[in-house]
Design a protein around this nucleic acid. Structure first.
Lengths: 242, 242
DNA sequence: CAGAAAAGTTATGGCGCTTAACAAACACTA
DNA sequence: TAGTGTTTGTTAAGCGCCATAACTTTTCTG
């Protein structure tokens, strides 16, 4: 990731701008070609440069991909956060719908970046510090976790559809998300993971075109009823507008 | 896809065997390198041939990929069918667990092939005849559909957690799966799709390593409780062993 | 056995990634 | 203002892989 220097010199600002231009060009090409496979040559050509010039910014193609991945999961997190801000904090059900819809919209609008972040890991990609990949999961999840905490503290969190929890899951809940301890019951932590998985499933299928045999309006309806089902199964209150 | 000739000449059998060897070598390399990106050069080297020889069998790399994709979704379907055969047809809940577990095991054992079939579509891949990609979805789904038909005819299918169905979804149910008409209610058809999506979600996350922060045993438990939740939400009877 | 078909080989071109060597632009200092 | 070092870009070149062409060897068939 590239840190944008605020009080930086002219050169540093130019350099930062070039980093951004490279990444944006790469994303444009990915969108245009429907692939996560970007050619350095093409990026350089679009930018009006020669390919070797890019090596002043990235050591190799994998380093650019890594940067795009870390950017990607931050954008996903931001999209969700932004959607959440637009909803009354009291309206837990509405917040769930907003977050899930943001997740979906981001995946639909940026399927390649979505695939980079949450699809099959790219081979050359080395995960620094426990891995942004894992961070992506935890980042998206932490907002979900916050939702469950809110629901629990405001006593709107019902028991999930399945309450059997194995010790392994309980241990993991304690280890990885200690902020939930004493607030969100273990069975709700499990339900939260399953809500995320269920959401991710329908979003993945749609983003990769496996639901194209549906009319767009039917897909919308299917998605909305899906996340309503997920909310019910997880014990979240359903949207206040219904 | 390569049709295996039964009463074929020596040469035809040799050719078919070479096709199989190419595909198996490609899959081995994919497993070994953790990529769907296979080099013709490497395949040839492992097979003790020169790269151009492979062009007697596949016009280009994309054609091999297409073959692997169509093979892949057939293998997935077979794995599910095989798992289903081992369970008492009366035990709807057990059959759901078996099918879902087979889906999971296949994805875990062949993550690259799973990514090819149900991940982001590969760019050069042209879908013949409405597309194997869509066929993959429908193929896996038709077995799910059969499960719901069985459940409905034996009166074990309860109402799903969400019963609101939009006209678009109902139309699609009628158009694409007429075999369900009059047997499986539309809300159950919708629930079936959502069950598949939910299953796919947790399987994708696990196959791509996004649940690696769980202990293996915890992942198993999470998966089992997930599909139990999904079954409940869809109105399927839960496994008879519980 | 002869000729055709199939399968494989070497030779070759093209393209993309990447490094090396060089040139121009820029910034800082005397 | 001139000089010097850094940054950013260029051209040249090597390597590897995809793919085609032309040629050779093997295998089938009449």
């Amino acid at each position: 990731m590239v840190v944008i220097p605020v009080g930086a010199s002219r050169r540093q600002r130019a350099r930062a701008a070039t980093f951004e231009e490279i990444k944006n060009t790469a994303l444009d090409l990915m969108r245009e070609q429907g692939t996560t496979d970007v050619r350095f040559t093409d990026i350089a050509r679009v930018m009006g440069m020669t390919p070797p010039a890019l090596y002043r910014y990235y050591a190799d193609r994998d380093e650019l991909l890594t940067d795009l991945i870390t950017d990607g999961y931050r954008h996903l997190g931001d999209a969700i956060a932004e959607a959440l801000e637009a909803v009354d904090p009291k309206d837990i059900g509405g917040r769930w719908v907003a977050a899930a819809s943001a997740y979906r919209e981001w995946a639909r609008s940026e399927p390649q970046q979505f695939a980079l972040v949450l699809g099959m890991p790219v081979p050359g990609y080395v995960a620094p510090d426990e891995g942004p990949t894992t961070e992506a999961a935890k980042g998206a999840m932490s907002q979900l976790a916050a939702l469950f905490v809110d629901a629990a503290t405001s006593r709107k969190l019902r028991k999930p559809l399945v309450c059997d929890v194995s010790p392994g899951v309980a241990d993991c809940a304690h280890d990885k998300h200690p902020e939930l301890d004493g607030v969100v019951p273990t069975e709700s932590f499990q339900a939260m993971l399953q809500a995320w998985a269920s959401l991710h499933g329908i979003v993945s299928l749609e983003a990769y075109g496996h639901l194209d045999w549906f009319e767009p309006k039917a897909r919308d309806a299917l998605f909305l009823s899906h996340i309503e089902m997920v909310a019910k199964a997880a014990g979240l209150p359903t949207s206040s507008r219904s």
